[in-house]
Amino acid sequence: MLHIVNKSPFDTNALAGVLRVAKKDGAALLLIEDGVYAATKNSATEASLKAAGMPVYVLQPDVDARGLQSRLMDGVNMVDYGGFVDLVAGHDNVQSWL
């Protein structure tokens, strides 16, 4: 399952929900919109993302828009909208954590 988070972890508990509930086997996490702030280097959420137990992707256009290019933590994968589409197509199901 592809889990999509579009909120900052400093604003809502959407990311916390994924990390608590999601079945890790076969899962991936995609951060879009304000969700990308979770992948900021040296942030309070960096450690929890590293321990997510699933691949983490960030949407590059949203990263760029927010000036995060040089402040991203290691170990996250950058995708564009085409990569977003591939992630949705490549997983059996998808859930947006609104």
């Binding site: 399952m1 509930v21 999601a22 086997d25 199901n93 859930q95 609104l98």
Partner: peptide
């Protein structure tokens, strides 16, 4: 439990969130 809920979600074809 959260883990059981996660298993349940992973089995779905369509997940609609509000």
């Amino acid at each position: 439990s959260a883990a059981e809920m996660g298993d349940m979600m992973a089995q779905q074809d369509v997940v609609i969130s509000f």
